[in-house]
Write a protein that binds this DNA or RNA. Structure first.
Length: 890
RNA sequence: GGGCGGAUAGCUCAGUCGGGAGAGCACCGGCCUUACAAGCCGGGGGUCACAGGUUCAAGCCCUGUUCCGCCUACCA
């Protein structure tokens, strides 16, 4: 790489492409398979994006945070594995390909299973890498050589192994249960895949005539069409309203003319509806339970497409919603519809296609989750796995404690086909890793494999170990499992995190990750969830095109405060682009002066040769490095980003670079210049390293232009144990200097004195230390405050026409004869006294309070006293000056 | 129904040893100062949602209220 002169302003496009290619080429993302014992391993598995996916803001935040962690740990010297990959996303992907087929005028049933799956693979081949390329634009430093896919050979083997073992352990079973059914996707859904939404519906009160002709039982329902499948009416055993109904009573089911029993069950809620509950075991989960308790038949009146079955009598063939209307009309005609009341209730929708789901009785496969959940709960309780922020642990426990068995079978084609075969001859079921040739019982070769596939999340649950080569005992697993942290948004805490915990502990006998960091959701400017239907989606790639990846990443990190959602607006990204540009220009300035001989030259310098700004900035560097480190370690990305931002812009640029300009532009002082440039090199280089996790591209670009650096900044070391390090004395002295400069600038600003006009200042120090500091840094103060003449005089009196600046330990008199009038200065002083008085009130009150003096810790009292005293002194000095000015004005 | 989070400057938000209210953007004034006008210097601006309580001391701890957002649930 050549060291070229840096362009006048930063242009991300070319830089980003160049360095990403360089990193890949140099294999800088590649994790060592077996890192040496002396190096600690750090590993993260990526939450695999769907192959159908396009990068959205959620991915951008999620992956930026992971990348910050990975790059930071590489700089710290850890052996880092960031395992990437994609998820086959069964239903989602199948939907996409089906839509494509529909556009081509065909469908999957015409193609047949095999050809359809070929079509999905072809589609994946063609567009599956889109999201990977988008992650690369984000700067993601994943180990791409190890990229996995949930349907690849190895992971499929892991899935079969897990299925077979769980089946043999009795933790997977098949059975007829009520599940959530999507009539559009024609598949079962797990409870989690159902989204509940409040809907304005109605309560239909229907009269069921008692068979003995003695009257009616009125039931209430929100889904009248299901009455066609009723097989009982249930009453609460203690309900006095129905005490007169005989235990053997029956009712005649309207429209169907079927006699069904009246039963008693404690599930019935006395306070809801009429207290009489219609029981439809085939289409309601509670009714299903009641049905089992009372040995009721289940009658399916709705098929997999949501059409009424033959069991629905004359309603057969109707769509479920049309049927609802027809049933209501028919009941009305017969005078059996007692009333219809509006009722707002939540209705389940398919999370993929948003169709209303139907509880439906069918034969499905389930995982028995309770035994697995126990260990997963314990892992968090004992602190083996930490959830951050901690408030999510409660949510985790709540869900885990109330976990229900997991329906894992899906009636789609794209996914892991369940490894179970049924013998056509004897009916025996064979569950095995490899396709069996013959039935172990009757040796028939007529074996038919289960057509269902597994829930996508079944394979994702194995991700932390399946990607590392399990079921083989690979070196990768040995080195990097358990992973260090899982970074994810809370919306998949149950879907994914909880299930990885269960599977990881069960199959690896070890937790899958030490930390779970749960970050916020990215919302739009108004705090709304971004969605296509709302049209408020901000495309991350669009932002990157406009502002550059680094500015975008910095924005994400800066606003990723724990426990709070990120509201994304372009305005903020623009602000951070300014920061990146600021850094760029600081680099241009530094590079005008730096040469290779200054690289790592600092420890050769005599420390006494360091100027106050040198010592100060080095001290600050040490502190900020520690601060940033602590913040990242605690997943406080906003604090880390803020600390570096503040340091680079407002300390390094605003103060240090300005402070050293006189030295750099002074041709005489070569020795002094050499010291300063050694410091500049040291500070600038380390600032780049601190920034690198957040802004990888611009820091790499500058790194290569900086004389005395070698290779990639990715191989640099995080600043630790710097010499010289913290220097409290330098910080205190610099504070004095800065106060003096700011004070003088303030006079100039407040009085509208042109910067072109140099000022003359007399300093009147009150203690030796302040005197020494001002004297030693006279030139610095004069330069930064634009003062042409600074006298230091312990006996100085306030010159006649002068503004007074009070800093700790000294008064500064800014001579203003002929520049301003006294009334202006009087007004300025009054304003300052007013401000001071306001600040003091709280403190004064405290010091007048006997209880405070008595009960507060002595050091707190002393502290307040000291500050108060200083302010009193300052105020009285200002008042004296004001008095004198007033005297002169008269 | 249960749970969680939020309410701080015009806007977006920081602020968990309880001890003199902060940042960025916006706004006002002054500057094309040889890294940067995507910049520099200075300035104004807050009853920390409301009501109580604990404490010498509350944005922070406790109780209650209002409003907003989210998660979760088999109430027909």
């Amino acid at each position: 790489m050549t060291r070229e002169l840096l362009d006048k302003s930063y242009s991300p496009e070319t830089v980003e492409k160049k360095w990403y290619g360089f990193w890949e080429q140099e294999k800088l993302f590649h994790a060592e398979e077996s890192p040496p014992q002396s190096v600690s391993a750090y590993s993260i598995v990526i939450p695999p994006p769907n192959v159908t996916g396009v990068l959205h803001m959620g991915h951008a935040l999620n992956n930026t945070l992971q990348d910050i962690l990975c790059r930071y740990h590489r700089l710290k010297g850890d052996s880092v594995l960031w395992m990437p990959g994609t998820d086959h996303a069964g239903i989602a992907t199948q939907n996409v390909v089906e839509k494509k087929l529909a556009a081509e005028g065909t469908d999957r049933h015409h193609l047949g299973r095999e050809k359809f799956i070929d079509a999905v693979w072809a589609w994946r081949q063609q567009s599956g890498s889109a999201i990977i390329n988008q992650l690369k634009r984000l700067g993601a430093s994943c180990d791409w050589d190890r990229e996995r896919f949930t349907m690849d050979e190895g992971l499929s083997r892991a899935v079969r192994k897990v299925f077979v073992q769980l089946y043999n352990e009795g933790l997977i079973y098949q059975g007829d249960y009520i599940i959530n059914w999507c009539c559009r996707c024609r598949t079962a859904l797990s409870d989690l895949e159902v989204e509940h939404e409040e809907i304005d519906g109605a309560f239909y009160h229907i009269r069921y005539p008692l068979s003995d002709g003695s009257g009616y039982l009125t039931v209430a329902t929100t889904r009248p069409e299901t009455m066609l499948g009723d097989t009982a009416v249930a009453l609460h055993p203690d309900d006095e309203r129905y005490a007169h109904i005989a235990a053997s009573a029956t009712v005649t089911l309207p429209l169907m003319d079927r006699e069904i029993p009246v039963i008693r069950d404690t599930h019935v809620d006395l306070s809801t509806g009429t207290g009489a509950l219609k029981v439809t075991p085939a289409h309601d989960p509670n009714d299903f339970e009641i049905g089992i308790r009372h040995n009721l038949p289940s009658i399916k009146v709705m098929d997999d497409d949501g059409m009424m079955t033959e069991a629905a009598g004359k309603f057969c063939g109707m769509d479920r919603f049309a049927c609802r209307k027809a049933v209501v009309e028919a009941l009305k005609d017969q005078g059996l519809l007692a009333q219809v009341t509006p009722h707002r209730h939540s209705v389940g929708h398919c999370y993929r296609c948003h169709t209303i789901v139907e509880p439906n009785l069918s034969l499905q496969w389930f995982v028995k989750t309770t035994p697995l959940a126990e260990k997963a709960i314990k892992a968090v309780e004992t602190g083996k796995t930490r959830i951050i922020p901690e408030s999510w642990t409660k949510t985790y426990y709540d869900w885990m404690h109330n976990i229900r068995d997991w329906c894992i079978s899906r009636q789609i084609w794209w996914g892991h086909q369940i490894p179970a075969w049924t013998c056509g001859a004897c009916g025996r079921m064979v569950v095995a890793m490899d396709t069996p040739d013959t039935c172990p019982d009757c040796h028939s070769t007529d074996l038919v494999q289960e057509t269902d596939v597994l829930d996508t999340w079944f394979s994702s649950a194995l991700w932390p170990f399946s990607t590392m080569g399990w079921p083989d005992q690979t070196p990768l697993l040995k080195a990097y499992y358990p992973t260090s942290v899982l970074v994810t948004a809370f919306d998949i805490l149950f879907f994914w995190v909880a299930r990885m915990m269960m599977m990881g502990i069960h199959f690896m006998d070890e937790i899958p990750f030490r930390d779970v960091y749960i970050h916020a959701l990215v919302r739009d400017e108004e705090g709304k969830k971004m969605s296509k239907s709302l049209g408020n989606v901000i495309d991350p790639l669009n932002i990157i095109d406009q502002y550059g990846t680094d500015a975008f990443r910095f924005t994400l990190a800066a606003f990723a405060a724990q426990g709070r959602d990120v509201k994304m607006s372009e305005k903020r990204v623009e602000g951070y682009r300014h920061f990146i540009n600021k850094l760029w220009n600081a680099a241009r300035f530094a590079l005008m002066h730096l040469e290779e001989k200054y690289a790592d030259a600092l420890d050769q310098q005599n420390e006494k040769a360091l100027s106050l700004p040198d010592r100060w900035i080095l001290s600050r560097l040490t502190q900020v490095a520690q601060q940033t480190e602590a913040a990242i370690d605690a997943y406080k990305f906003n604090e880390a980003a803020g600390a570096v931002y503040q340091f680079v812009w407002h300390e390094l640029c605003d103060w240090y670079l300005e402070a050293i300009k006189p030295t750099l532009y002074n041709d005489g002082a070569e020795a002094e210049k050499a010291v300063t440039l050694s410091v500049l090199w040291q500070v600038f280089k380390n600032a780049l390293v601190l920034l690198h996790p957040f802004a990888p591209f611009v820091t790499e670009e500058i790194w290569h232009a900086l004389p005395g650096t070698k290779g990639s900044i990715m191989r640099a070391n995080w600043p630790e144990n710097l010499i010289p390090g913290e220097d409290p004395a330098a910080e205190a002295d610099m504070k004095t200097v800065m106060a003096a400069i700011t004070g003088i600038r303030n006079v100039r600003g407040e009085m509208n004195i042109s910067p072109a006009l140099a000022l003359s200042v007399v300093a009147h120090p009150e203690d030796p230390q302040t005197q020494a500091v001002i004297t030693a840094n006279q030139a610095l103060i004069m330069n930064l405050a634009r003062v042409s003449d600074l006298a230091v005089d312990t006996a100085a009196q306030r010159p006649k026409a002068a503004a007074t600046v009070l800093i700790e330990g000294a008064a500064l008199f800014v001579k203003l004869e002929g520049i301003i009038d006294f009334s202006q200065e009087a007004a300025r002083l009054e304003k300052e006294i007013g401000k001071l008085a306001k600040e003091m009130t709280g403190m004064t009150k405290k010091l007048e309070n006997a209880d405070f003096l008595e009960k507060a810790p002595p050091d707190v009292v002393a502290g307040v006293r000291e500050k108060h005293k200083a302010m009193v002194e300052k105020r009285s000095a200002l008042e004296t000056t004001l008095g004198r000015i007033r005297d002169m004005m008269e």
